[in-house]
Design a protein around this nucleic acid. Structure first.
Lengths: 138, 138
DNA sequence: CTCTGGCTTTACGTTTACGTAAACGTAAGG
DNA sequence: CCTTACGTTTACGTAAACGTAAAGCCAGAG
């Protein structure tokens, strides 16, 4: 094994359509995320090559979408995960962003919980009503 | 007091701009919700008159928006609260809707909680980093 | 009566998050 | 060499959720 050889095996890579299928997106959508700065795959010729890192970021993107964030909001959010190499002023900014985000998420948590309470009560009422009509089966 | 008079005092009503201010929306937005069938205020001449019921529905609408629901999704959601006067087939449909909604909300709950865990860890890391640099103040 | 303030309708404009079509590059297979 | 299967860029199209401008109705103040 020659000196300076990589310790790990060759990193696994993905094509755009592999990613698309894995996350149930279209290639168009993935290119769009790149345009918006959410992904920055390297190129091999003109083809995009995605790595495990892009996979992880896409997982975060999907979670952000399920939470109703905008693409721009998700971009800011992703930046928070990249906090390693920041200078102090940038750090302060990220800290504020993170805390803002935490505040709205705490509100969202309360909203989700209250809505679940409501819906479960409604479900109970409906089931009850159907039972009284002897129409609960099927 | 004449027979058939209302038991409660005259119900409190609101103009469109009163509602708009209370919920930090524009009148345009409230009319839009009416177009989409989320609100159905009565008219006095050509003016819209909103009651306590519309107020309550707007509160639910705002909660739905914070949860990232679409307007159409919120409309379906509001219908679930109006379950009193439904026939059996409609009831079954509503029951399914409610259960679907509960399922996605449970996913959303997990997403919010995990994101909060992530962000609080990031916050800890950043605070730590700033502390090491003696740059925590202000 | 006129003017103002608030409400109304109508309708076109805007942003976001992609869809979709056109036209082309390139590597593999028959 | 030709086709097929992916990939690429460019660019116009679209649905959702309002914004915004234009023009009119109508009650109360001066």
């Amino acid at each position: 094994m020659p000196d300076g050889a990589p310790v790990t095996a060759v990193e696994e890579t993905y094509t755009i359509s592999q990613l698309a299928e894995a996350f149930e997106l279209t290639p168009r959508t993935i290119r769009y995320y790149e345009d918006e700065g959410l992904l920055t795959p390297r190129r091999e010729g003109q083809q995009r090559v995605y790595t495990h890192r892009d996979w992880a970021r896409l997982k975060l993107i999907m979670r952000g979408k399920r939470l109703g964030f905008t693409i721009a909001g998700i971009k800011d959010f992703l930046d928070l995960y990249e906090v390693g190499d920041a200078q102090v002023p940038q750090m302060r900014f990220l800290l504020n962003s993170a805390r803002d985000r935490i505040t709205t998420l705490e509100q969202q948590l309360r909203d989700v919980q209250q809505t679940l309470v409501d819906l479960r009560e409604i479900e109970g009422l409906v089931v009850d009503h159907l039972a009284r009509k002897g129409a609960l089966d099927t």
